[in-house]
Nucleic acid binder design. Structure first.
Lengths: 341, 341
DNA sequence: TCCGAACATGTTACCGGTAACATCGCAGCA
DNA sequence: TGCTGCGATGTTACCGGTAACATGTTCGGA
């Protein structure tokens, strides 16, 4: 520190250049440097220029940990999602991360897999970093978690699901409704026999349940309901169709819990000599690239994951900037009929 | 604060329960609480039990921001990748995040897209959070960035590429070599005419260059080399094949810069009536699910993304726990011949 | 019986910023 | 000319932990 004008390398992270070093070089108080970085409009042009020059010369990188402790704002959002292996989650995460980044926030990613305890543990862990906001997947929390979240006093967005009593902000849709809509869609095309291949995650199960309930309401028949591991890949769809193949009626309408599952089923149907759509009608979920770009494309339910991410970021920012009312954004879902039905 | 035994709700985040509150309730010094949480083996069983009870009773959530400032360890790693939309990146990111999580580190995700300036900006931004380590994509940095990184005095892992002078730790492979290997593979099968569909990212271009160079060395012919946007999806592969279809020789060997591209090409070949593999041999890259689970599966180059993530985490942890030597891990690549060649 | 490790716990000072308040200088105005 | 108000900048104290050192306690061996 003998020569505060020179960044003394090899002393520690960033050569220990701190705000006081910059202030000394620029001939101002540390607080003024802080103002240049955080509220530049409260500093005169001349002073700001001097400070910026000093920052440049020293290669100063502000320490957001110190700033966060002092200001009680971490400028960080934690996002807890089951996985990023599926477009269902990496799309919103990607868009959300970009949008929050543009607003000066970083996103800490926590992957919870598909076990509820793991999710709670991840939430607990990230709360220790005092995020300014939280993005969670799904809308159903244990009472203990609700308490923890309300104690945290930060905005929370829950995505990909709806609930009558969300924690805070909600950006999602009703999965049961989607299942029912798919059943109606099939029924309208004259189907009476149905099957489902569903991944073992709560939302896929809700879709499947909505589907089966509507089938029952219509007085039609579920010939098979087969469970797959979560997250389900194309291969699981293939194995799934093979598992239920002998139960298929003359003409069956199959609902896959994701486009991966649906595509796997379509591929396997080809191998087994089951004609799509004549013997087997297929509808997927998610509008993944493959549903459109496969030859031919197949019917699916579109829900815009990017839109969910964008909307989640927007709502969170509104909330953090003073909007006090928790909000609920219902994202539309729409069946895109293609060649598989 | 009149009743330190009760968490006084509605005062601020976590009802302002801090380590001194826990200490007071447990009848110990704050430092002892800190020890219970960080180095439990240096605390007696009895004391630890009392402290844990107090933590439980108050619902104390430690503040890692304060802890990080004091200890100069953030227990956080920043990961900068172009996108998580491709298995190429979300696989290593997912595995890396899990592995670091098991070691007590959180991962901050920064998405850089495919513009070099964006990457540098992201790195600068995350360094302000004083990560204990850094995961970067690719191995080529500007001099300014190298300086910044060495000033930061933290371990850096660069993945998915190799370089003669890596910043620090390297976990990757030579993309040019992969391209050459694919050319050799095709040549060994009797091919003499080749084409490439390549995404415009540095590593895809390196693969394609290695491919074209080897083709030239063999005295064979590149009939087409078509550039796609990055990241390239199945649709881009379809469009790409359509764009070069009229230039295809009687029998051509096509190298796609990813399995998405390759699959798109295969699908489009079907539409155009080009027989695979008789008229068009196809090799992809990445061993994505689709390359194995398509019917039939297609030839690809396998590089284990999960292994890259695992190895990156391992190397980083070794380094942070005292290993001083920068290391270089070469990840194997292997051509998996399937029905498309 | 006494001494000194080894262990358990407490005390002090500091990590690097920023909120809140204090101060200063100067223009506008009576 | 003196006062007021406001923009620009400085000062003080604190955010909530933990490193480093100090102190107290226990127990085995000479």
């Amino acid at each position: 520190m003998e020569h505060p004008t020179l960044p003394s390398r090899s002393r520690g992270p960033f050569a220990s250049v701190k705000i006081t070093d910059v202030a000394a070089l620029a001939g101002v108080a540390p607080m003024t440097v802080s103002r240049v970085l955080n509220t530049p409009d409260r500093v005169s042009q001349l002073t700001a220029a001097k400070v910026r020059a000093a920052i440049e010369q020293l290669g100063y990188v502000p320490n957001l940990i110190a700033g966060g402790l002092s200001s009680r704002r971490s400028r960080m959002i934690a996002a807890v999602v089951p996985t990023i292996a599926s477009p269902m989650f990496h799309e919103p995460v990607q868009v959300f991360t970009d949008a929050m980044g543009a607003a000066g926030y970083h996103v800490m990613l926590a992957l919870s897999g598909y076990e509820p305890e793991a999710e709670d543990a991840q939430i607990r862990a990230v709360l220790a970093r005092r995020p300014d906001g939280l993005l969670l997947t799904g809308a159903h929390r244990t009472p203990a978690m609700r308490l923890l979240l309300s104690d945290a006093q930060i905005p929370v967005v829950e995505i990909w699901d709806v609930s009558d009593s969300p924690t805070d902000i909600l950006v999602g849709f009703d999965h049961g409704e989607v299942g029912a809509a798919v059943a109606d869609f099939f029924a309208a095309a004259g189907h009476t026999h149905y099957a489902a291949l569903l991944a073992s995650d709560p939302r896929a199960m809700a879709r499947s349940q909505g589907f089966a309930q509507r089938v029952a309401q219509l007085g039609h028949v579920m010939v098979a309901e087969h469970r797959l591991p979560a997250p389900a890949a194309i291969r699981d769809g293939r194995l799934g169709l093979r598992a239920i193949a002998q139960r298929l009626a003359g003409r069956t309408a199959l609902f896959g819990s994701s486009d991966n599952v649906a595509y796997g089923a379509i591929l396997e149907a080809g191998v087994l000599g089951i004609a799509v759509p004549n013997q087997l009608s297929v509808c997927g979920f998610g509008d993944f690239d493959i549903s459109r770009d496969a030859e031919p494309g197949f019917t699916t339910v579109r829900v815009d994951g990017a839109e969910i991410g964008r909307s989640a970021a927007e709502q969170l920012l509104l909330r953090m900037n003073g909007a006090t009312k928790p909000n609920r954004v219902l994202v539309p879902h729409r069946i895109l009929p293609r060649a598989s039905t």
